[in-house]
């Protein structure tokens, strides 16, 4: 992720960050050693994983858990430990 550093002339004054939530452009998925995998067959869409994910990395589409935001998932494994149906497993990530 190559970031172009700007001149003092081209940034807002006071250190303000004007684009709310732009951390989504910052990739924390590279921190991961283990990666969560979803077994859709077992998932009952209880959304416990969504509630307890610290990195906002559970993807929900039309009320269905569809997978993970691997750009931001740090691989903490919390989703696995809260899943009541063992629909999520962690595996060593091949890089």
């Amino acid at each position: 992720m190559k970031e172009i550093k700007k001149s003092w002339k081209n940034i807002p004054i006071g250190g303000n960050i004007l684009e709310a939530g732009n951390s989504k452009n910052y990739i924390t998925g590279t921190w991961r050693t283990f990666i969560p995998r979803l077994d859709k067959e077992k998932c009952v869409n209880c959304f416990q994983c969504w509630m307890f994910c610290p990195d906002n990395s559970i993807s929900i589409v039309e009320n269905k858990m569809v997978g993970f935001d691997y750009d931001h998932c740090k691989g903490c494994g919390m989703c696995v430990s809260v899943c009541p149906t063992k629909a999520i497993t962690m595996e060593k990530e091949e890089k």
Binding site: K24, Y26, D55, K74, C76
Partner: peptide
């Protein structure tokens, strides 16, 4: 949003 740099597994977010 995600992309913050709290430790993995931190409950604060």
């Amino acid at each position: 949003n995600g992309g913050h740099r709290m430790c993995p597994g931190c409950p604060t977010p």
